[in-house]
Design a protein around this nucleic acid. Sequence first.
RNA 1: UGGGGUGUAGCCAAGUGGUAAGGCACGGGACUUUGACUCCCGCAUUCGCAGGUUCAAAUCCUGCCAUCCCAG
Length: 359
Amino acid sequence: MMTKNKETSQPKKLLLGLSGGVDSTASAALLKAQGFEVTAVTLDTWQEGETDRQRLERAAHSAALLGIPHIILDVREAFYDKVVLSFVNDWREGLTPNPCVMCNPDFKFKKMFELADKLGCPYVATGHYARIKQDDCGRWLYRASHRPQDQSYFLYRLPEKWLERIRFPLGDKTKEEARHIAAATSDPVAGQKDSQDICFLGQGKLRDFLNQHGLEEQEGAFVNRAGEPIGTHQGSWRYTVGQRRHLGQAFGSRMTVLSIDHRQNIVVLGTEEDAQMAELELVDFIGSHPLPPFFEAEAQLRSQGKTLPVTVQLDDDQRRATVRFIQATRLSSPGQSLVLYEGDRVLGGGIVAKMRFNP
RNA sequence: UGGGGUGUAGCCAAGUGGUAAGGCACGGGACUUUGACUCCCGCAUUCGCAGGUUCAAAUCCUGCCAUCCCAG
C-alpha cells in the first residue's frame, strides 16, 4: 500500500542502508511513504557463513516487495582493512575497541555517502534510532524519542556536515512500531531477532577470532594491586578491563580486571571497591560543535548505560578531555567511548585512555 | 618416630545427630548493533576410606589412608 505524497512536487532522492533487518526495512517503508525516491544499498561486508548470505537475500527480498531499487555493494576488502584490522590492532595495543562506534563514521556512512554522491542522492538514511535537530549553531545529533531504543551513542562521531543530509526515519519510533511496519512489508524480516554481537565475528567467539588474527595466548600471571601474583591466567587477550566473571579461576570472591599489560602478559585484579573510578581521560575527542573549555554534562559509557553527571575539562585543541564523575562509578575500559549529553542532545565524546581509580 | 591440626563438588567454604548453605569456576539461556556488566537456570543421592552405634550420621565411636604443622 503506497500513498504517494501529493504535496511533494519533486521526489527527493535518498539512499537507504538496508541491512535485511527489522529496522532498515521499516525505514524503507516509512521513507517511501514520506515521498522519498528511495534506493536501497546493502553493504556486503563479510564473507563467512550462511547468515550473511541470508541477510543479503532478505534485504533484496524486502526491496523487491517495496518496489525500490536495490544495490549490493561489495565492500568486503575495505571493511576488512578499515574496520576489522583496526579492531585487531586496537586489541594488540591493549585497548578494548568499540567497532560499531568507529565503523559508522569511518566506514558505513562514508561508503554510503560516496555512493549517494555517485547516484545523485542528496539524502542518506539508516535505520538507526536517533534524531537530528537544528538550532542557530547548526545541526546536532539527538537521542531517539524513546530512550530504550536510543542508538545515538554509536553515532557521536558522525561529522556535522553529514547530519544535514542524514535522515533517521525511526528516530521517533519504538521498536514495536518498527516491527509492525516491517511486518507489513516482509514477514521474515520482522521475525528477526534484535540481538547482535560484533557483526563480523560470525559463529566464532571473539577470543578465537583474535587468536586467528595473531594474538597468541600464553599463560601468565594474575596479580593484585600490589603486583603480587595470585593466580594464573590463560593469556592476557582473553580478558578485558572491567571483567569480573569467567576469569577461569576461583579466588574465593569476585575479582575484577583492573588493568592489563599485554606486553608483560600480566592481568591486574582487584576488588569491586578497587574498580571505582572518579575521573578519566578522553583522547580523540570529537565535539558536535565548539564547546566551552569547562562544562557540566551527562556522560554515558555504554549505549544503554546509566547517565552519569560529570564535569568536562577540554584541552585547548579540543582533542582531549578530562572527565570527572560527580559520583565515583565502575570502571570502563581503555578504547571504549564516553559520550556526553545535554539532555537529549549529543555534545560529543571521545575514547577512554586513562582512568583514575580510587586510592 | 612422638605430639597436634585438617580431610565436604574443579577451588574456597558453611554445616557438630535429622536427612548437604554460599561464593568462585564451569555449562546453558536472557539482555545487547562493541568488549564487558547485569539477570535467570543448571551444577555433590553425597561429605578421605572401611566398619560400628542410632529410627536417623558429614556430624558420635573404632581402624586405616592422605595431608599440614611442631618436635632437635
